[in-house]
Amino acid sequence: MSQTAPPTHLRIHQFAGLKPGPRLLVTAAVHGNEVAGVGAIQRVLQLLDEGSLTLLQGTLTMIPIVNPLAHRLQRREGDRNLNRNLRPTPIPQDFEDRIANQLCPWLAASDVLLDLHSFNNPGPAFAMLGPRNNNGDLEPFRHQSAESALALAVGTTRIVEGWLSTYALGLKRRADKASDGSRRMALQQDPHYGVGTTEYMRSQGGYGITLECGQHEDPQGPEAAFKAIVRTLVLLGMVAPGSAGVEAADPQRPVELLQLYEVIDREHADDQFERAWASFDPVSEGQRIGTRADGTPVLAPSGGRIVFPNSRAEPGNEWFYLAKPSDRALT
Rank of each mutant, 00 (worst) to 15 (best):
L114P: 02
D94L: 07
A108K: 13
N121R: 08
F95Q: 09
E96V: 04
F119L: 11
N120I: 15
P122D: 10
N101G: 13
S118P: 01
N121V: 15
A108C: 12
D115R: 00
S110H: 04
R84L: 02
Q102D: 08
A108E: 15
F119D: 10
R84P: 00
L116W: 01
T89E: 07
A109E: 14
P105Q: 14
S118H: 05
N121S: 13
D115W: 01
P105T: 14
I91Y: 03
F119G: 06
P122L: 05
A100C: 11
A109P: 11
D111Y: 01
L103I: 11
V112D: 04
P105I: 11
L103V: 03
V112C: 00
N83P: 00
R98T: 13
D94E: 12
R98G: 13
L86S: 02
P88Y: 02
P122Q: 07
P88E: 09
L113N: 09
L103D: 01
L103K: 07
R87E: 10
L116R: 02
T89K: 09
H117F: 06
N83C: 05
D94P: 04
N85T: 06
D94T: 12
R98K: 14
T89C: 11
D115Q: 07
F95D: 03
D111I: 05
L82C: 02
A100M: 12
I99S: 08
P92N: 10
N120C: 04
I99V: 15
F119R: 09
F95Y: 15
L113M: 08
P90A: 13
P88K: 08
Q102I: 09
H117D: 00
L86P: 01
R84Q: 06
A100H: 09
I99F: 07
P122G: 12
D97F: 03
L113P: 02
N120R: 06
Q93H: 13
